[in-house]
């Protein structure tokens, strides 16, 4: 389904070493526009290192990154954001004490010229914030409502809406659902679905197979710094994914002792 497009990002044999620790030992992934690509892996599998390489925080030790067909070199996250790669981090998406509108435009404040001075255009910021929030299904009391009063799921949604509004082509979501309740998780997954339909590539990091199956088009499993391959939706069952993530053998034994409830 996605093979007719050229990949938006292609990561080829990415290796990342931290001193003597090999965090990534040759990972290759292709991300296509309009797909939700789930990156699964247990704790310590190298998921965070991998997305930080993609978003410009780390430079790969070996391997190359192609963005829209061209080899790219990001010096810092700002370069990646400018290119259209936005990352939403689990806990660090929003500042609770600031209003939704101030958060939404943080780092991208709209300006109103007044002679030689540029002032923060609160009117425009408030209007756009309310529109975007309504489109995402969040009803604010007002644009000056503090982010601290929003639920975890709503904060993730605001952060996603912000990234989309500022022209992200690739949206990297770092465990957006891991700290959320059932209802909030559903909201975030619905948001992911909306974003994907706009033609934006979503890279969805999770260790929850059910969340991945709910929205994912393709699934890549990382284990101990290596990729165990990418599967299309429908070609793999949740149980198989779970086994791949945990490294098969041990998990089967553990599951046996827990009566198959994990």
């Amino acid at each position: 389904m996605t093979s007719i497009h050229a990949p938006l990002i292609e990561m080829r044999n990415i290796e990342k070493h931290f001193g003597s620790v090999i965090a990534l030992a040759g990972v290759s992934v292709q991300i296509y526009p309009g797909e939700c690509h789930c990156l699964l892996g247990d704790n310590g599998a190298g998921k965070s290192t991998f997305i930080k390489t993609m978003s410009g925080v780390h430079k790969p030790t070996r391997g190359e990154i192609l963005f829209e067909g061209k080899a790219m070199q990001f010096d810092d996250p700002r370069d990646a954001i400018t290119a259209g790669i936005a990352t939403v981090y689990q806990d660090l998406a929003m500042i609770p004490l600031m209003s939704v509108s101030r958060n939404f435009f943080m780092g991208n404040e709209p300006l109103k010229k007044f002679g030689p001075f540029g002032f923060f255009d609160h009117e425009k910021a408030n209007r756009i914030t309310m529109e975007e929030m309504r489109a995402m299904g969040i009803n604010l009391r007002g644009p000056d409502q503090a982010v601290g009063t929003l639920s975890g799921g709503e904060r993730q949604t605001v952060a996603i809406a912000r990234a989309v509004h500022f022209g992200a082509k690739v949206l990297i979501l770092d465990e957006p659902t891991s700290a959320l309740g059932v209802r909030q998780t559903a909201n975030v997954l619905a948001t992911v679905d909306k974003v994907r339909k706009k033609g934006i590539a979503v890279v969805f990091i999770t260790h929850n197979v059910r969340h991945a199956m709910a929205v994912g088009d393709r699934f890549t499993v990382l284990n101990r710094g290596k990729t165990l391959g990418t599967a299309q939706r429908g070609q793999i069952t949740p149980e198989e994914l779970q086994d791949l993530m945990a490294g098969g053998q041990e998990m089967a034994e553990l599951e046996g002792s827990l009566g198959g409830t994990v």
């Binding site: 996250p77 700002r78 954001i81 990352t87 981090y89 660090l92 998406a93 929003m94 500042i95 609770p96 004490l97 600031m98 101030r102 435009f105 943080m106 780092g107 991208n108 404040e109 300006l111 001075f117 540029g118 002032f119 923060f120 609160h122 912000r162």
Partner: peptide
């Protein structure tokens, strides 16, 4: 309260890391 820089002041004190991630 009325400038871009002012928003950055709030952001820097509110959560420096979150602010850095969006380019402040």
């Amino acid at each position: 309260t009325r400038t871009r820089f002012g928003n950055w002041i709030f952001a820097a004190g509110g959560d420096a890391q979150a602010a850095r991630y969006v380019g402040v």
